[in-house]
Write a protein that binds this DNA or RNA. Structure first.
Lengths: 238, 238
DNA sequence: CGAGTCGTTGATTCTTTTCAAAGCCCGTGG
DNA sequence: CCACGGGCTTTGAAAAGAATCAACGACTCG
């Protein structure tokens, strides 16, 4: 789950991997023993409208969650990384679709069993509540980004969020692998592929990032990226 | 809380007032006995960054929840109506600001007491989980609207959502009072006041709505509004 | 090696924003 | 009671940012 908050430094993220591990220690057998689900690149985990029979937790890979309009316009509402839960919520049906963007392994949590366990075990309930709360915060952060930031600021936000995730996971915060295509980024940031591409080259020409490959960003000027993302001057600062 | 879903007819909203009443029956004295908080028009309930000491539930009035960028750009993430909870979530500090847009009365739920009660009482916990889940759904719906819909489609969505709320509350679904200003609508839909105003007049000229006053919309062609909101043809259908 | 997908770049168009100004509503006070 | 003032809304004209249309290049995989 990508948190697109205004001030990343204020946002003391909880380590999702740790919480996932905690959960594992407490969950009962029905949940612990479920077989993992493997989905191939571009394969769907579920579609909007499908009944919620399982909640998933990403073990490996990346999944994009999205909603669409009738004419095909698509809004990616989140990228789910290892540790993230997919499909949490109180309704009967999924309200968005989930598609793997790389080869992915998921652990499957039967929804009714999970809720039953959560009902009896406040710890588990609290885990889910926290996870949901994090997702709400991420969604609202993205809303601010998509609603108010310029194209450059939006891309800066995304790169910063991915960098933060890397740091949290103990990998290099300056080297960012992009598992998603430009089209995915475009639909996440509510831009077009062309604008995303142009914005990448603009950041590259400004020496703020390097593009070793189109799917590997190296941050050269972290501070500049933060300034852009903060939104002090509508992205005109460079 | 305004749900901006693609298909309002699929979205069987739970009656919030009822759930609020249920909750009331179970909450312990510390929570039930708190004095209501009265806030005047344009007064803030809390600001982003404030420590969360209370969760609020709107009893009367309307509150807008928003996030801002450093240069003042504002994104309203939700309008909270009677029955809605404000400030739910797992963190220590509020991640958005809350400002009354009309004279408002709130019931105050001390955060720690509430969580303690929820911890011991799965019913309460589930209420909060559901409320949070609804807010997440609303946020993602708004994200789709802001990210993918045209100005006309966005306004259509808002009017439809308000109409649905009226129906749910047993009032006239065709007559919509707008407690918020054009600026509030603009910041909710990520548009400018001018665009909002122009879009209102366009809908009026198309005989889809009437504007008795600037703050009172009468829906004349509900179907047309639904078509616009559905997003089949990028709002070019009229 | 060729087909196809993905990414980049260029030219043009268009929706929305920005800048500017006038109208309207409403409360206040003379 | 009506004039005045200020905020909110509407409308117009011009500008800008991003979208669209179009083409080319790069990389991948049968």
């Amino acid at each position: 789950m990508l948190a697109m908050t205004l001030s990343p430094e204020i946002d003391a993220r909880r380590p999702h991997f740790d919480t996932a591990a905690e959960t594992e220690g407490v969950l009962d057998n029905r949940i612990r023993r479920t077989a993992p689900k493997v989905v191939h690149e571009r394969e769907h985990v579920f579609f909007e409208g499908d009944p919620i029979d399982h909640i998933y937790q990403v073990e490996k890979g990346t999944v994009c969650l999205y909603k669409t309009l009738l004419d095909g316009r698509r809004q990616i509402i989140d990228f789910a990384y290892p540790g993230d839960f997919i499909g949490l919520g109180a309704g009967d049906d999924h309200v968005f679709s989930a598609q793997a963007i790389t080869a992915t392994r998921l652990r499957c949590l039967p929804a009714n069993a999970l809720h039953e366990v959560a009902w009896r075990n406040p710890d588990i309930g609290m885990q889910l509540y926290r996870a949901l709360s994090d997702q709400l915060r991420a969604a609202r952060g993205l809303l601010l980004t998509v609603g108010q930031r310029t194209a450059t600021e939006r891309l800066a936000m995304l790169l910063l969020a991915l960098s933060q995730r890397n740091k949290r996971d103990g990998t290099d915060g300056a080297r960012i692998a992009l598992p998603m295509t430009r089209a995915d980024i475009a639909d996440f940031l509510s831009l077009t592929v062309e604008t995303v591409s142009r914005t990448f080259t603009k950041l590259r020409q400004s020496k703020i990032i390097d593009l070793a490959q189109s799917s590997l960003v190296v941050i050269r000027d972290y501070h500049a990226l933060e300034q852009l993302a903060a939104g002090e001057t509508k992205g005109k600062a460079f």
